[in-house]
Design a protein around this nucleic acid. Structure first.
Lengths: 222, 222
DNA sequence: TTGTATCAACTCCTCAGACAAGCTGACAAG
DNA sequence: CTTGTCAGCTTGTCTGAGGAGTTGATACAA
């Protein structure tokens, strides 16, 4: 029999399955390592490694002398995986939610340093849109968008944006690869408009311009 | 309560630190288990458990016969942890971003089943706001808000909302505990207004009413 | 009855050693 | 150059032995 997964990994999956099946509820104590090892017909160290893996995924917690306890009913699927599996249009709608709100807040909170950051990243984007390879252009574009989000001075929104970036980057590169004329590179004016609204401290306008620009991206990508 | 760190856990932290310091870059192969065990002065099984833990966190990957490799430069910090550490006002602004956009999309996509869901959860919320304990009220409130988000029919927004819920729930319960008169329970009308705007297929109105209601929550919680 | 101290049985933690299984690169044969 | 073999590395698994911490029962004293 060919095993493509090590025993410890299989054991971890089995434990996760049983937790999902409700064999052990939240906070419950698992049987001892020796018992589990006998149940799954593996050695004790193998069970320990399986438990360690689930501990790393914040599903189990072991306390010396007391036992092993369930602290989450399922593995918190990391967002990178979620986004990779999600429909790109759903991801873009998430991005719209984050960026329009960020633009709105940025219009209220932007500092002089933020404005300088806008100027730099906009200039970079201008240059990259004219003659650089696709990946440079995409990076320059994302850098400007990130500048907007950071200007909102909200750690949660910034983290959310960063979480979305890898998926967005892939989608943009795929799109540009199929677009020989680079038709989608010439929306510099739309980006300038967002920055200008934020500079003018006009939250509604900033949000609206951000929404407009992302709508254009969305229509290109779908 | 003091928290003791087992050796395996300390070893995992040490490895993570070294990866963060750039001692091993993305895709690099770590020294053998026996070498690492000698370096950290622990047994090989301890090192193996540390590696397992980081494998569960998708930082390392071990391949039999080949070695252990770095597959991510840092642990993808799970969002529950991020939100727990974040400022509550930052979290609420994230919630505003998600919910206002969801309300907007819901106004465009809501089905008859969604509208029925609104009626049920609104009625529950009404009852709970009058005479139920705090946690019931909070659950009923969150159930209605979740109904709005699901009516947007966007998996990413729904997942984002669910990620935020635990943190929001804690904050609301803390707030209610300090509020003897339950002053914040009587905004049922504001919730009805959101549902009505979505029923009427008015995206801007739905977003605006959602923003208003959440602004009230925010001023109460900060 | 109530509170305290002790202790035995249980748990996980760590180590060492042995062998199996798989990968890689060197090297010889064609 | 291509192919096959193999030695030497790697991780995977099991076992046995103690160490360390927790928990609940039990005996004892106030």
């Amino acid at each position: 029999m060919i095993r493509r997964h090590p025993l410890a990994e299989q054991a971890a999956e089995e434990l996760l399955r049983r937790i999902g099946d409700g064999e052990w509820t939240l906070g419950a104590k698992l049987p001892g390592e020796t018992t589990l090892a006998a149940q799954l017909s593996v050695g004790r160290s193998t069970i320990r490694e399986a438990i360690r893996e689930l501990a790393g995924r914040r599903v189990l917690e072991s306390r010396q002398g007391a036992g092993v306890f369930v602290i989450a009913l399922q593995a918190a699927e990391d967002w990178d995986t979620v986004l990779r599996k999600a429909d790109i249009s759903d991801v873009l709608e998430g991005r719209v939610a984050i960026e329009t709100e960020a633009a709105r807040l940025a219009a209220l909170r932007r500092t002089p340093a933020d404005l300088k950051n806008f100027r730099y990243t906009l200039a970079d984007r201008q240059r990259a849109s004219e003659k650089s390879p696709d990946d440079w252009y995409v990076e320059a574009d994302l850098a400007f968008h990130r500048a907007i989000v950071t200007a909102a001075h909200n750690a949660v929104l910034t983290e959310l944006f960063d979480t979305f970036v890898p998926r967005i980057r892939r989608a943009m590169l795929d799109m540009l690869k199929l677009d020989d004329q680079h038709r989608h590179r010439f929306d510099q004016a739309a980006h300038e408009a967002i920055a200008e609204a934020i500079r003018a401290k006009d939250p509604d306008e900033a949000a609206a311009r951000s929404r407009d620009q992302l709508a254009a991206v969305r229509s290109a990508l779908t």
